[in-house]
């Protein structure tokens, strides 16, 4: 079987079924774009976890005059409480786990708050003594925040011990759900693209059943009968996956790097190199699915 002959058969098949081929291209394009987006979201989650988990601190909030009665019956934490907390953080049991800790008093908390909420109406009403004095603790291993929580929760004068990662986990949950949604849409679309490919190949085989009959009669091998049809599906899906690769890279360059990264400068976002990582995955997925779908579809025309 010569290459030129197969090539002309494939081109003829693609031309004959142009509408179906375009629909394969579009469906593969959309479905693989969803796959790519979901993969990028997962990469983004991983990257944010790395970045933020390392920076996440454990906060030991001390009681203020306006803290709820239940946790802070004695109101504003006294100097004794601060000494007690400080001693315990520096003690032999806790010190090995702690990289560093520092104290933030009312004035610093107020300054930080003003900075964070500059321009927001709440900044005008809040007073320094309403904000908790806080011990910020950086652990060597952020996963061991449990140790701090257990040592300080319930201590008189401590309102709450909070691992900042609990805030992050909510964000990651939302991102995870978004990527799950993208994957589900992608799966549905992939199923329909597989069905579409096999229908198209069947149509293509049906419109060429005379040729197929003659090929079998004169002794063309199964491989050379199958190959043009498989290539037909693969070529269409390949074009679709190239388009989806372009869309995913465009998403990274124009939306993530061009829009998000400029507006949220302190977050690390997926880069073009991460996008490049996804591209071969998309192309491989498109080609393998198309080859399998069209190979199965053509099989029943090969019965001798």
């Amino acid at each position: 079987m010569r290459f030129g002959f197969i090539f002309s058969e494939v081109a003829q098949g693609l031309r004959r079924n142009i509408a179906m081929v375009i629909s394969i291209i579009l469906v593969t394009f959309i479905s693989l774009t969803f796959v790519g987006t979901a993969s990028l979201l997962q990469l983004q989650i991983g990257q944010m976890k790395n970045y933020w988990y390392d920076r996440a601190q454990v906060a030991i909030y001390l009681c203020t005059d306006i803290s709820p009665e239940a946790t802070c019956p004695r109101g504003e934490a006294s100097e004794d409480v601060k000494i007690q907390v400080q001693e315990r953080l520096a003690s032999a049991t806790l010190a090995p786990f702690i990289e560093e800790f520092y104290f933030e008093d009312h004035e610093q908390a107020f300054a930080n708050f003003q900075e964070q909420f500059a321009g927001n109406a709440v900044a005008q009403y809040v007073k320094a003594e309403q904000l908790n004095e806080t011990y910020w603790v950086n652990l060597f291993d952020p996963n061991q925040s449990q140790i701090i929580t257990e040592s300080f929760t319930g201590l008189a004068g401590v309102e709450e011990v909070r691992d900042q990662r609990s805030y992050l986990d909510q964000i990651f949950n939302i991102l995870n759900i978004a990527s799950l949604a993208a994957i589900s849409v992608a799966l549905l679309m992939l199923v329909s693209s597989v069905l579409l490919i096999s229908t198209t190949i069947r149509l293509s085989a049906f419109s060429r059943r005379r040729e197929l009959g003659i090929m079998r009669l004169v002794g063309a091998s199964n491989f050379s009968i199958q190959l043009p049809f498989i290539l037909e599906g693969v070529v269409a899906a390949f074009i679709g996956s190239l388009l989806s690769a372009g869309a995913v890279l465009g998403l990274v360059v124009f939306f993530v790097q061009g829009f998000l990264a400029e507006r949220l400068p302190f977050t690390s976002f997926v880069s073009l190199s991460d996008g490049m990582l996804v591209v071969p995955l998309l192309i491989a997925a498109g080609v393998v699915l198309a080859a399998a779908a069209s190979g199965l579809a053509i099989r029943r025309y090969l019965k001798i």
């Binding site: 005379r210 040729e211 009959g213 003659i214 079998r216 009669l217 004169v218 002794g219 063309a220 091998s221 199964n222 001798i304």
Partner: peptide, 23 residues
């Protein structure tokens, strides 16, 4: 075996009542 059938058929020639040409 089915995969050797094509090679067997290359040694035969066949014609039918309805010619079976590609139009």
């Amino acid at each position: 075996p089915a995969r050797r059938v094509p090679f067997f058929r290359r040694k035969l020639g066949v014609v039918f009542q309805d010619f079976r040409l590609l139009p």
